[in-house]
Write a protein that binds this DNA or RNA. Sequence first.
DNA 1: GTCGCTCTCATA
DNA 2: ATGAGAGCGACT
Length: 799
Amino acid sequence: MQVAQVIVDVPARQTNNPFSYSIPDNLANQIEPGMRVQVPFGNRKITGFVVDICDNSNFDGKLKPISDLIDLYPVINPELLNLADWLADQTYSFKISCLQTMLPGGMRTKNKKKLIAKNQDVIEQHPTIFHGQNEIEYDRGNFDNKTLAQILNLQKAGEIQVEYDLTNHARPIMLRAYKGVLNSEQIDEALKSVRKNAIGQIKLLNILKGQPTDNLLLSKWESMGVTASTLKNAEKKGWVSATSKRHVRNPFLRPVDPSKPFKLHPDQKNAVDSINQAISTQKDQVFLLEGVTGSGKTEVYLQSIAHALEMGRSALMLVPEITLTPQIVGRIRSRFGDQVAMLHSAMSNGERYDEWQRINTGKAKVVVGVRSAVFAPLKNIGLIIMDEEHDSSYKQADNPRYQTRDVAKWRAAYNHCPVVLGSATPSLESRARAMKGVYTLLSLPHRINRHALPHVSIIDMKTEMTKHQSVMSNKLADAIQVRLDKHEQIILLLNRRGYSSFLMCRDCGYVPRCPNCDISLTMHKDTHSLNCHYCGHTEPIPRVCPKCHSKRIRGYGTGSQQLEEQVRNMFPTARVLRMDVDTTRKKGSHEAIIDKFGAHKADILLGTQMIAKGLDFPEVTLVGVLNADSALQFPDFRSSERTFELLTQVSGRSGRADKTGEVIIQTFNPDHYAIKLAQTQDYEKFYATEMRVRHEGKYPPYYYTVKLTGNSPNENQTASEMFGIMNFLKKNLSPEAIILGPTPKTITRINNHYYYQIIIKYRREPKLKPTLDDILIQSQKKQRQGLQIAIDNEPLDFM
DNA sequence: GTCGCTCTCATA
DNA sequence: ATGAGAGCGACT
């Protein structure tokens, strides 16, 4: 007898192993590993992933049969099934979460339940449940305990029925097409038979008369004035035949012109040769491609991808979250055309589903995408590229907390292919591995056009005068005016989130704070409200201070909205564009802003981090960084690295064409090494300095780290549980392991939950994994008391 | 005795 | 996750 091993969709420790189900006759020979099924579990029906089919089960009891098949083909291929196991183990998360993460958003089934009333009486007797409708969504959180008990009783009495809605949310678009099947005599006959006032039908028949019998899409018919219902009717009468055509959504906004490989300069050629060698010999070698901005990394990627394709293999190229701009995708598509699929968070569920489908069926051979694209169902991968490998968006913030680099390396080993990690400012971890010979270092030290790097000057804001309380120094303001006069473009970077300004009373110093979290509320001028960044709490902006009733309560700090206002006031004739989370929320607005600025329809582009990366505007000759050190103020071991990397990145934005660029960095820490070394773009010296700091502080890459976070609604409980965990760790780990904490997190209270953390730093700790697994199992029991434990393996920060 | 509540347990 | 059953106080 065939038995299916199924990972059920119940995210809990106790259900983290496959459950055995028998395969009913009607599904025999149809079920394969990687397909999703519906199975009975307890007294309900849930979704699950078939991970294996075997001949017998080691489960003693009687097996229940699989109730239904959700997919007609496997949605998780054998490689990814393997990967899911490894990933769950690595990230201390559930297998089901890993499997779900691998699917494009729209394909994740939601276990939605419906309550259906058997008759009208039930609806009328229970208005609080049904509100006059015969079908409602059954979300247990929406009802109080009393109502839930009522529902249960009604269910037992057979008065209402619970149904499960396990459908995919992304679906293919099917377009109806119709064509005429009558010859002209039949049409004449039909014309005689219809009523005189059947305008629609007469119109259709007349069109059919003059038209060759082509399949025409419904939209085409509609544009000719024939409605869908007329066509449906005509189909019944046998006048037209109908077909459905799958419409593949196209996420690419515009066509691109094909491009030819460029001639490589010697450094590039050397890099391409090494990578291609590894592709040909199927070696899972990891390369660190280190090249300053403008050194031609992309061309190296393109020619290596071309080689992988020539070898009959596929290629995966990963890019950071906000870089995936049309500029980069355009370059890939111009070389490889329709074989390129794109996976990006700004795409709709439907678009992502269609692109995923093109990859899964083998139609797309090159995938360009963000973090989650590392799970693209490509087969026979010949090359994996991670551009800007140091970027923080490669680490997933919630379960499974994976580092894309590690997943890429796993897939490379599985597929016997190389990984190329590219960056101008590699992460210290990667660079250290390259120095140890674990990775192969390839460098592109020269800018392609041999143009000098822009001139970078640092302005000490402690001594610099500013015009009327502005965040902008006189020097920067003057420099901007010079460019405006010359009709050149300017980029202004605010090293902070867009809406970071808060409200403060100028008389008593009162700052409105979130009632649920330990954080001040941020001001949104567009919606005229105060919002909490963490829990979503919203309240109106007060006119007078609630504490001292002063009217002098107003905004403080500089968000990009305020900067925009200031810049407009200072340079009234300049055309200003703002790009931040607020102005790019709408689909396509990101591209629209870039296009507009690229076409020189604006003089100044100002915004947050997202303007720093990967954009190429030849007309930009001045880049101003308003507050270079705001990242340095974070109590985090990676803040220097972040600051250096960001400043180096923006500097690369200036003067890429034939005009020399200038960069002006405003800072309150002009002597900090991250800022000084960014001025000279000296990565080598920064690497050496920062490695010393990391060595002294026992930070990565000298030490491995784990962050353990606990939270519950009760602060005392959280603290005492975390102390218990700390003692347990001390007992089980070697004396060399460094255990820090428990300490309250920087923001201790979020949504009325109290957060404490423990940091573990270690070099070799074979008992760590089993100890942490143990802690998770123990904590499962305490979960009902509201305590939640999260483990982050190799966290990006200790905050 | 049984209703109502919380706690524990198994789910194949 | 979540329904079922156990255990226990309270009460028609």
